[in-house]
């Protein structure tokens, strides 16, 4: 039951993109087509899942025992950069077709703040999920991370669908490009606010 609450809360209610503003750069940058948006989302889900696992273990089994929590930001971003690189190499060897689909997005993911953001949230923020406030354990952290990433994907794909239609309509010159995309995102965020109170 608790995991269901975590999932609904992370995917819909506290959508990482539309209510926490993490990962807005790729959200605006690579959302012109549904297919690229879906590819990007796939890569992000994969990287967030692996990097959260590694940074969570790093935080609790290395940084805290050694008393060097102040290295957190540096350590996490290094792990993420190295992981992205490794994923790229492994994918290239194991599954060339998947590499072709996700490859171009991988380098962009290092500077996607959703990845570092989720990694930091799961080790610094207390969650309630209906019960007492507590720090997440590993299983909860993983469920939360993957659900957040799926939330990112859901928002990405819906938004790309909207933008494909926007391309076909006549938008005033000063609204072209980023402005109309932002206003559309605002309306989408309004729609997602309807989920508030669900959990």
């Amino acid at each position: 039951m608790e995991y269901i609450i975590i999932i609904i809360s992370a995917v819909f209610v506290n959508n990482i993109l539309l209510s926490q503003f993490l990962g807005v750069c790729p959200f605006l940058g690579v959302s012109n087509k549904v297919s690229t948006a879906a590819g990007m989302s796939g890569a992000v889900i994969f990287v967030i899942a692996v990097s959260t696992l590694v940074t969570y273990l790093l935080q609790y089994y290395v940084l805290i025992p050694l008393g060097i929590e102040f290295m957190q930001t540096i350590a996490f971003i290094l792990v993420i950069a190295a992981l992205v690189q490794m994923v790229e190499i492994i994918l290239k060897k194991i599954s060339p077709s998947l590499y072709q689909a996700l490859g171009i997005f991988l380098p962009l993911i290092t500077t996607n703040c959703a990845v570092l953001g989720v990694a930091l949230i799961v080790v610094t923020k207390e969650f309630t999920f209906g019960g007492e406030a507590h720090m997440l354990n590993l299983a909860e952290a993983m469920v939360y991370a993957i659900a957040s990433a799926v939330g990112f994907g859901v928002a990405m794909v819906i938004f790309a669908g909207l933008r494909e239609h926007l391309d076909l309509v006549n938008v005033p010159k000063v609204f072209k490009g980023a402005p109309i995309a932002l206003i559309t995102a605002g309306i989408l965020a309004l729609a997602f606010m309807g989920f508030a109170g669900l959990v």
Partner: peptide
């Protein structure tokens, strides 16, 4: 005092 019942948690 504290509570866990806030909208954003504690």
């Amino acid at each position: 005092s504290y509570t866990s019942a806030g909208f954003g948690g504690r």
